[in-house]
Simulated assay, not measured.
Amino acid sequence: MHKPAQTSEPIHPLLASRWSPRAFSSSPVASETLQALMEAARWAPSCFGAEPWRFVLCDKERNPAAWQKALDCLVPDNQTWAQQAAALILVCADTAFAHNGKSNTFHAYDTGAAAMCLVLEAENQGLRAHQMGGFDAEAARAAFAVPQNCACLSFIAVGKQAEAATLKDDDMRAREETPRQRQALVDNFFDGAWSVPVKVM
Rank of each mutant, 00 (worst) to 15 (best):
H2N: 12
P4R: 02
A5D: 03
T7Q: 02
T7A: 15
S8H: 08
P10L: 05
I11T: 12
H12D: 15
H12N: 11
L14E: 13
L15I: 12
S17K: 08
P21R: 04
R22A: 12
S25N: 05
S26F: 02
S26L: 03
V29T: 15
A30M: 06
S31D: 15
T33Q: 08
L34V: 03
Q35R: 15
L37K: 01
L37D: 09
M38K: 02
A40Q: 03
A41L: 02
A44S: 12
A44M: 06
P45R: 00
S46H: 07
C47F: 05
A50M: 09
E51R: 08
P52K: 03
F55W: 08
F55R: 04
V56L: 08
L57W: 11
L57S: 06
D59H: 12
K60R: 10
E61F: 11
R62V: 02
P64M: 07
A66D: 10
L71Y: 02
L71F: 04
D77P: 12
Q79E: 09
Q79F: 09
W81R: 13
A82P: 10
A82M: 10
A85C: 07
A85I: 04
A87P: 13
L88E: 14
I89M: 15
L90Q: 06
L90W: 01
V91H: 02
D94H: 14
A96K: 08
A98P: 01
H99W: 10
N100S: 00
K102D: 11
N104F: 09
F106H: 09
H107V: 08
A108F: 05
T111Y: 10
A114C: 11
V119M: 14
V119G: 00
L120F: 02
L120N: 00
E121A: 11
A122N: 05
N124A: 11
Q131E: 12
M132H: 02
G134N: 13
F135I: 14
D136G: 01
D136P: 01
A137D: 06
A137W: 01
A142F: 03
A142Q: 15
A142L: 11
F144A: 07
P147Q: 05
P147S: 07
Q148P: 03
A151S: 10
C152D: 14
S154R: 00
S154D: 09
F155P: 08
I156Y: 04
Q161Y: 06
A164F: 03
T166Y: 01
K168F: 00
D170T: 12
D171P: 01
D171N: 10
R173V: 03
R175I: 08
Q181V: 12
R182S: 06
A184L: 08
L185W: 06
L185C: 08
N188R: 13
W194V: 04
W194N: 06
S195K: 15
S195R: 15
V196N: 13
P197W: 04
